[in-house]
């Protein structure tokens, strides 16, 4: 019995295949077609596990592209999937912070991994991966280079919450000769503050896990810990917790 979980996000599509204790992971860019990305993930995961495509019926999809797959797969929200995935990895965690490409969310779970409450960002890119992508661009950097380039001790305040205005603000700071490392640290703090305010609406309970693509950025992790006043756990497979949760939910029938 195998179970495939897909988390088709706005930037990356993640897949987890569970097979008798074994686990295969795969990530690809979502591109313009969430459906194609999903199908490609299924094919590649099955190939890796050595299964022919027709044998699989147990597919559970989450993420914004969850309805695009259109092949009869079960859909579950990313809220429930992240809860399930993180609970499987870290049973002691009660608060999950997930920052993805186009949204950020905080989820409170109980000891059995069930969702108690959640909040998501509003119609705005502030506090999401998109904010970092746009602002990294203004600095002439790839989003993956931000973490290494930051100088926390020289952090400057980025006051604009709006992504578009933040980009202009950065261009202004660069024109004044402000150090790039300080600007990057300021950006990290800006994202952390926005997300921390959201988390505090829920209240911080138990241990905190930080997932999603943005969790790979150590600068954001540090800034979040500072804003929240507690340590946060970043799972090694931080991008896959939603897909893992989907696969686990699928395997439970």
């Amino acid at each position: 019995m195998i179970s495939i979980g897909l988390d088709i996000g706005s930037v990356a599509a993640k897949g987890v295949l569970l097979q008798e204790g074994q686990q295969h992971l795969m990530i690809i860019p979502t591109g313009w077609s969430p459906r194609q990305a999903g199908e490609q993930l299924i094919d590649s995961l099955l190939q890796r596990a050595g299964y022919p495509v027709k044998d699989v019926h147990n597919i559970t999809v989450t993420g914004y592209g969850r309805v695009a797959l259109n092949n009869g797969a079960r859909t579950v929200t990313e809220i429930k999937c992240h809860a399930r995935g993180v609970a499987a990895l870290y049973p002691q965690v009660r608060t999950i912070i997930d920052i993805g490409g186009q949204d950020s969310k905080a989820i409170q779970i109980d000891s059995r991994g069930r969702v108690i409450d959640f909040v998501m960002n509003d119609k705005c890119a502030a506090g999401t991966g998109r904010f970092l992508q746009v602002t990294a661009n203004a600095l002439g950097l790839d989003v993956s280079e931000l973490s290494d380039g930051e100088k926390p001790e020289q952090a400057v305040d980025i006051n604009s919450m709006c992504t578009v205005f933040a980009e202009s603000e950065i261009i202004g700071l660069l024109a004044q000769g402000v150090d790039k490392g300080g600007i990057i640290a300021g950006l990290h703090r800006s994202v952390a503050r926005k997300v921390a305010a959201m988390v505090k609406r829920l209240g911080i309970v138990g241990e905190v896990a930080f997932t999603g693509g943005v969790a790979m950025n150590r600068g954001i992790k540090r800034a979040l810990e500072q804003e929240l006043g507690c340590t946060v756990i970043v799972p090694e497979m931080c991008q896959y917790t939603g897909a893992l949760g989907a696969a686990l939910i699928g395997s439970e029938g």
Binding site: E78, I79, K80, V115, F118, M120, K123
Partner: peptide, 12 residues
């Protein structure tokens, strides 16, 4: 985005 929130509520 409302759909995700409402679906998550009903899952709860």
């Amino acid at each position: 985005s409302i759909k995700v929130r409402v679906e998550a509520l009903l899952e709860m």
